[in-house]
Design a protein around this nucleic acid. Structure first.
Lengths: 279, 279
DNA sequence: TGGCCAACGCAAGAAAACTTGCAGCAATGT
DNA sequence: ACATTGCTGCAAGTTTTCTTGCGTTGGCCA
């Protein structure tokens, strides 16, 4: 039974102070969901004990139980991602595929909270201004690296993939100079090569861009530009490249949009870009 | 300063346990915003004291202060009213990122109309029963091929990637026998190699599975199993691998679910699979 | 006016949540 | 091999938050 249903049910027996509290709850449910009993009470100028008693009266075991219910109803259930998943569940009865798609959509929906156009544009400029671009992607990230490499090369940029073992990569990296850029993809754990690589990049005066998952902000040393967002799936489980690939794609589109030198100069909307872009 | 900025700033000094906590926070910010220190700690299996210390390290006066900041950033700021404004801003300013994400979601939502669990399960069975698996992916599809190869290999299967030019591939394919399987990825145009390759597969009595875009039904000769769905973006424009990658991921999950021989035998929901799967 | 009852604040007590000193342990360097 | 350093869990201490018995207050009815 929902919080509001319970309120309705108990409506007749509510005291004036309790009505005040309920009124406050209905007016600002999201605030109250995050507040303590005393906070709610002081908002309407009654004693916290009254709030505690209200929770009981509505059938909750404690004020915490009451607040949890409010949180579920007004925060968790109104989460955009959860809504999408519910919608999908209704259409196709929860099989693996629908579940997977739901998670992907959920993660994509959350993406703009972590990456915005300003960051993308900055990174895009760096890549456009770079003389040469080195791509670093190991392990799970490899497929993404392949894709990035491909797209950048298609834009007419000089791209080098850092493949092979540490020694091979080191040799390739020796060629790096000021004016070059590194774009790396990192998920799960920080690769052994990461720290020395970024140190080297900084030392020679090149720029670094990292596309990452949840680990992004924990990476050390920091890159010049960090584009990260959580991937879909639970932390240690089956995670996909959908979100980071979306970041990479957006980055490429941002480059196309930023590129004042190129043929795409005055195109602004994605629709126009798409029409002109050799995908 | 935002929570994530503080994390970045302190990134270098974070301990392994603290990184775990941060990762969890980034993956489920809204849950953590509503949880207590002990709850966050137990999610990643560390002591609540560690969570408390993390809050301090990030510059908050207490764990409550930390949690308040999280709530402000991930709940209050995404309040429906605020969100509507953001959405408007995005659409009016032709935000590339939001536009891209919208298209991806649209395409993903349509996926179940083209691929269902029955088809996926059939294909999964073929791969599980195959003695060896050959992966064919050229051009745009290459990144997807890399990913498929990786995932199948991780499941303990014998996988061979058909790389190099036509001659190289031909030589590799000569080894194919009855009981083997081919999984191919095809978008845009039918590759030169496609027809002879599939003829050969059929001739030796092996099975073929193709993951494709809109071109799927037009491919000739037909594969034994065809998994196709339109990709996001307009027909000839900037198309992404999101949808075909979702198909591939679903296929891998279906294999895990089908695998009666393996350790994953009785897992049914994606949640359980995820918990057990080394992604 | 007096008696009754419900409502409510008070404040002490209980529970939950958070903090912190300490010790064990593992990793790292000498 | 030993010393050092730093991470982390433990458990006791502290603070915050919630609950509850009690007494006062104010309204209502006889």
């Amino acid at each position: 039974m929902s919080v509001l249903e319970r309120v309705q049910q108990a409506a007749e027996t509510l005291t004036p102070s309790e009505r005040q509290l309920v009124k406050q709850l209905i007016a600002n449910p999201r605030d109250i969901a995050l507040a303590t009993a005393s906070e709610l009470a002081s908002r309407v100028g009654v004693h916290e004990a009254t709030a505690s008693r209200l929770a009981r009266k509505l059938g909750y075991p404690s004020y915490s139980g009451f607040r949890n219910a409010i949180q579920q109803e007004f925060i968790v259930k109104t989460d955009p991602a959860v809504r999408v998943r519910n919608t999908l569940d209704q259409t196709t009865s929860g099989d693996l595929l629908a579940d997977l798609i739901g998670r992907e959509i959920e993660a994509l929906t959350a993406l703009p909270r972590y990456v915005d156009m300003a960051r993308l544009s900055e990174a895009a400029r760096v890549l456009l201004d770079a003389r040469r671009i080195f791509v670093f992607a190991r392990g799970n990230a490899e497929a993404l690296g392949v894709q990035v490499e491909r797209r950048l090369r298609r834009m007419g940029l000089q791209v080098f993939a850092l493949r092979g073992d540490a020694r091979d990569s080191a040799e390739q990296v020796l060629a790096m100079e000021k004016g070059d850029a590194l774009i790396g993809c990192v998920f799960r754990r920080q690769p052994k090569l990461y720290a020395p690589l970024l140190d080297h990049v900084r030392a020679v005066g090149a720029k670094s861009i990292i596309i990452a998952g949840s680990i992004g902000p924990s990476l050390a040393p920091k890159s010049d530009h960090l584009l990260f967002a959580p991937r879909s799936g639970s932390q240690e489980g089956f995670q996909t490249l959908t979100v980071p690939m979306a970041i990479a794609n957006a980055l490429v589109l941002a480059m196309a949009a930023e590129d004042k030198r190129g043929a795409l100069e005055k195109l602004e909307t994605l629709g126009q870009l798409i029409a002109a872009f050799e995908g």
